[in-house]
């Protein structure tokens, strides 16, 4: 597995930040999805690269989880029982502790317009299922870089 290149659109000055966020071992990721297969995949890909991953099966459990583990990044499915991704991201954005935490939608909603709707709905990034590992990591790094620049 080779590291995906840093975001090529990032400016020269932010390249160092991008490299820092590319140290995957420093990531604490909360993955929230009702699909066990997807949680397994995400966990495998991220832990293999050294990250710490915590999982939850719906938005409500996800909120409990993130308050416990204070993740550096949240991967959030949209269609879930009890509390869906839309509700959870709204709750996160209303919570001062998580207003800045990068939240990436990881969803099988991939019709035209879905991405725009999702980015407008409080998410920082968007990964459509099925995903390829390179795009997956690339989008995470892009979001973390963006977050680091804003911080």
């Amino acid at each position: 597995m080779t590291m995906p290149p840093p975001d090529s659109t990032a400016s020269q000055s932010s390249r160092t930040d991008a490299l820092k966020v590319a140290e995957i071992s420093s990531w604490v990721v909360a993955a929230i999805d009702d699909e066990m297969d997807n949680l397994t995949l995400v966990t495998k890909v991220l832990t293999f690269n050294g990250a710490t991953v915590h999982t939850a099966f719906n938005g409500a459990l996800g909120l409990e989880l993130v308050r416990q583990v204070r993740p550096t990044l949240i991967l959030l499915d949209l269609s879930m029982p009890v509390m869906d991704g839309w509700a959870m991201v709204a709750a996160l954005r209303a919570d001062p502790n998580f207003q800045k935490t990068p939240v990436i939608a990881l969803t099988a909603h991939a019709m035209v317009g879905d991405k725009e709707r999702i980015l407008a709905g409080g998410f920082d990034g968007y990964i459509s299922k099925p995903f390829r590992i390179s795009t997956f990591l690339g989008e995470i790094i892009r979001c973390l870089t963006q977050s680091a620049q804003q911080a």
Partner: peptide, 14 residues
């Protein structure tokens, strides 16, 4: 679209 993509995600991912 959603229901077809979800199993494909598992296939492609694994």
């Amino acid at each position: 679209s959603h229901e077809l993509r979800t199993p494909l995600n598992a296939i492609i991912g694994y």
